[in-house]
């Protein structure tokens, strides 16, 4: 999921360097318009390549950082069953990160470069993972809402014009459904429990609802990148369209749980069949993207520490491989 930063950064990327032949660009657009997939070594406009590298790597970084809020509850999961499930889910997130890094590498960027950009703070990842998980119900809310929003974003990406990205997304989407259901299952159980447990579920919904809506990125009127990405068939639906779809499917799920979405304007318009929503706090969104969210510093510090702590393992594996290769020679 987690591709919202696309609309934020590097807005000059879509312009290209102006040196590409008009004929090549036209031929490329014709292929895209014909729904042909673009493959790794095919000719592509520089701006298309850069847009994809940024989007796919941000997406990968989000999967990797996204392990942290959930990892926070791994040792405190309420049962062995929940713990095993959560562990499997977090492992999937790592896997998703790896599929995506490998897709981005086909565009000519190295793994080390991407990881370096994440660790240095240069690269962005989804704003949602900078919010804290303070109760067990937050783990339910993440699966239900955050992965739910991710699915909404990702299903159209399965049809993205770039072959390696679209294939990675097909694989990811197959796995996301488990993530969302395990989250909802946590909340179903809490909502059937004591008044205190139900209050905990409502509190999690209150805190995760708005940040989840922000995951779709800025409103269409402020999203400068969308038109080009749509023309290139990287993006298939606008931010607002996807956000609306998410709200429409999620509100009835909240009602089933007996929970209330924290937005008085979120009522069904019988004429359009859509739920409304109040104004999103875009200032908060911008601050979180800029690095001033509740957990930005903690998330990055933890990733850096994990990277540094793993250095000896990488070094040892490398030395072992070299020794074996020398012996075989």
């Amino acid at each position: 999921m987690y591709t919202q930063g696309l609309d934020q950064k590097g807005q000059s990327d879509a312009k290209g360097d102006g040196l590409e032949a008009a004929a090549d660009l036209a031929a490329f657009q014709k292929r895209v318009d014909a729904e042909e997939k673009i493959e790794a070594k095919d000719w592509m406009p520089e701006a298309y390549r850069r847009t994809l590298i940024r989007q796919i790597s941000q997406h990968a970084h989000s999967e990797i950082i996204g392990m942290q809020p959930e990892g926070n509850w791994l040792t405190r999961a309420p049962s062995l069953k929940r713990k095993a499930i959560l562990l499997a889910k977090i492992q999937d997130e790592a896997g998703h990160g790896l599929y995506l890094y490998s897709a981005a590498e086909t565009l000519g960027v190295s793994r080390d470069e991407m990881v370096g950009d994440l660790l240095s703070g240069k690269a962005k990842y989804s704003s949602i993972f900078n919010y804290p998980t303070v109760t067990w119900a937050d783990i339910g809310a993440i699966g239900w809402l955050v992965d739910g929003a991710a699915i909404m974003n990702q299903i159209p990406l399965c049809r993205c014009s770039y072959g390696p990205y679209s294939r990675a997304m097909v694989r990811i989407c197959k796995e996301e459904s488990f993530h969302q259901r395990q989250g909802y299952d946590i909340l179903v159980e809490l909502c059937k429990g004591t008044a205190e447990q139900k209050a905990m579920a409502q509190d999690a919904l209150n805190r995760w609802w708005w940040p989840s809506l922000m995951m779709f990125g800025p409103s269409d009127k402020d999203s400068k990148h969308s038109a080009q990405s749509m023309a290139w068939k990287i993006k298939r639906f606008s931010n607002d369209e996807l956000r609306q779809k998410f709200i429409d499917v999620t509100v009835p799920q909240a009602e089933f749980l007996g929970l209330k979405v924290p937005d008085d304007e979120c009522v069904l318009d019988k004429k359009t069949g859509h739920y409304g929503h109040g104004e999103i706090d875009w200032q908060e969104f911008i601050e979180v993207i800029k690095g001033n969210g509740p957990c930005n510093k903690q998330r990055l510090a933890k990733r850096r520490k994990a990277h540094d702590d793993g250095a000896w393992v990488r070094e040892a594996a490398g030395a072992y491989a070299e020794k074996r290769a020398a012996k075989a020679a």
């Binding site: 790896l98 599929y99 490998s102 590498e105 793994r111 990675a168 990488r314 594996a317 072992y320 290769a325």
Partner: peptide, 11 residues
């Protein structure tokens, strides 16, 4: 299916 990085064949 995709690609991965590894130090050697077994890994």
């Amino acid at each position: 299916a995709g690609s991965i990085h590894a130090a050697d064949d077994q890994m």
